[in-house]
């Protein structure tokens, strides 16, 4: 069985490359799909727009969601996901630079599964990526997707 995707929603190419690198160094083998803004993320999740032809109906094993994004921001994306039956239970980890209490509270209220602040030091980033990847791709049991 093909490993499920990890959806990385991130607009900063540096961060995209670093995250992919960190995940690789952490030996996470799941394919990483990148969405560069909120609309693209929703297109991927709901197989619309540029992702209308996505083959598998599987939801990603985890969505790594930045908050500050062009078009729709991460909070909007999270809200849409939780409103939709298909993505209601998909694990979402907020992966962001912000440590604003307001953001943390808001995303938890909306049903984020975790909130991780991107560390500046790459070592720490790798540690975080490894722990995240290990936890969500191996340890965590997600509910069966709705029929």
């Amino acid at each position: 069985m093909r490993a499920k995707d990890i959806l990385l929603v991130e607009d900063n190419s540096d961060d995209i490359e670093l995250t992919v690198m960190a995940l690789k160094e952490a030996k996470i083998t799941n394919p990483v799909v990148v969405a560069r803004n909120g609309v693209e993320a929703l297109d991927y999740l709901f197989r619309t727009g540029t992702h209308a032809g996505r083959a598998s109906a599987d939801q990603p094993v985890v969505v790594l969601l930045d908050i500050k994004l062009p078009l729709l921001n991460g909070i909007d994306v999270l809200q849409r996901m939780r409103e939709d039956e298909r993505t209601r239970r998909t694990p979402v980890v907020m992966l962001t630079s912000s440590t604003e209490q307001a953001d943390i509270v808001r995303t938890y209220d909306l049903g984020a599964n975790s909130y991780v602040r991107k560390p500046v030091e790459f070592e720490n980033f790798v540690v975080a990526a490894r722990q995240l990847g290990l936890y969500w791709t191996v340890l965590n049991e997600s509910p069966e997707p709705p029929a």
């Binding site: 961060d15 490359e17 630079s97 440590t99």
Partner: peptide, 21 residues
């Protein structure tokens, strides 16, 4: 401060990350 916390840290992360790479 939001933008400081978010925007100023991102390039730093890139500098450090790619230095490490």
């Amino acid at each position: 401060s939001y933008s400081v916390s978010h925007d100023l840290r991102a390039p730093l992360r890139a500098i450090d990350g790619f230095s490490k790479a």
